[in-house]
Amino acid sequence: MKRYNLRRVRKHQLLLLLTGWLLMAGNLAWGQPTSVSGTLGAVGSDTMAGLVLRWGEALSARHPDINLQFQAGGSASAPTALVAGTTRLGPMSRPMTHAERQQFIDRYGYPPLELRVARDALVVVVHRHNPLDTLTLQQVDAIFSTSLACGAPHPIRRWSTLVPATDWPYGQIALHGRNLASGTHGLFQERALCDGEFRLDISEHPGSSAVIAAVGESFNAMGYAGYNHLNPMVRALRLVDESGAAVAPNERSIQQGKYPLSRDLYLYVNLPPSESLPPVEQAFLTLIFSEEGQQIVKAAGFVPLPNQLRDAQRQHP
């Protein structure tokens, strides 16, 4: 089923990209950009709000008559809005679940076009002067969870366990994370805690930048947050991947998917198989996969797609 869907998606991408090429070829032939105008609506992920809005700003700069309206209601709001037909674009920080996809197919008879638009990661951060450098995923679980679902022998509570050689930092590890309702919380639980239970004494902050701010001011703190919120107050730890190598979260490792907690950011498009995208949406997609669009991804703190994936989505699969 999944496979079938993927193939279908590819087919739509092909169509989309063909139309895109035609349009671009047309532009080249006419020698100047056709003037595109209209309103572009998008509903979806809170995490991607900054990114989508920056894309919108750049789009308006390219085509002054296009106006992007983005409603950030969390990733879960995107499928609802797509199914309802109130938007054709649904940015999501996770892939659609099977149920969400099925709902869409039930309503329209074809699956939504799935595009990967950027890469992101969750980072485990400590104070910038903290001597700790690397953690295994088991250790992360032992620090943050009560359930030890990833197989760690016992929980880790004190810094002396992690950095036995120095007497600084000392005391208990002060833990910081996101609140229950956020997708970051859910993703960290799934990927780093092996679906286990969080400890109760984690400070649950209402935003990733609050986590970073809290960790950056407190030498015995550790926390998890979105990669795009990193700032010089904190340092992101290297995590040990399956092969046993410690991987630092940076543009390269996240781009290549080597960093264990990296993830893709998606854009779902409602596009009937036989149709081409309206010019406004088309202009938006062209921007996203252009050099400028991927630069904006970087400026928003996320990681651009690897070139071959970008080209695959822009051109022929």
Partner: peptide, 14 residues
């Protein structure tokens, strides 16, 4: 105010 202080991209800049 709450959003830029707690949800923004870079709290130091905000």
């Amino acid at each position: 105010l709450f959003d830029t202080a707690f949800h923004g991209e870079d709290v130091q800049a905000a």
